[in-house]
Amino acid sequence: MSDREVDQQLVERAQRGDKLAFELLVSKYERKLQRLLSRLVRDPAEVEDVAQEAFIKAYRALPTFRGDSAFYTWLYRIGINTAKNHLAAQGRKVPALSDLPGEEGDEDGGALGRDANTPEDELMSRQVAETVNAAMQALPEELRSAIMLREIEGMSYEDIAAMMNCPIGTVRSRIFRAREAIATQLRPLLGTSRDRRW
């Protein structure tokens, strides 16, 4: 089941009333959407409000989502429209169509990339980035290569297996072990799972 099909599966569960499935989609796309919105709405505090509004609109519109496009493509359009409405309601300039960022945002992280909402957020953001980078450096070479090929290059397990000259099962295992090693370093920063799950 491809990444898009996993999203479709989560959408269908949410359409049947499973709110947790929608929250898994939020957990997956919240940062990507905020990065996109921060190109339009410069104030980081507003970015979070607009992102929240976009997700609520998406949730209400779920029955109309037919799966003709990827879930994030659909969410991207809702996010852009929500941001434009937000700016228009405040009498601020709405960017021209050509100025709108693409689905992946731009290289610049936008307002959220430059400075986070509060000094605490900024500190937290920096700590997370530093912890991930340090954990990556501490990984054995084969784990680091596997997770980089997956997360940075976006390669499939099959392609990584061909490149690293090993079975797909080994790739699956290496990527998981790399993630788990990094997550172990991150957990003290993020709190317990119960804290993070309301």
């Binding site: 979070e48 959220l112 909402n117 937290m124 993020l190």
Partner: peptide, 12 residues
């Protein structure tokens, strides 16, 4: 790793 902003989970 992909360079997205990483204020964790507050929006969620």
């Amino acid at each position: 790793l992909q360079g997205n902003p990483v204020v964790p989970g507050r929006l969620n």
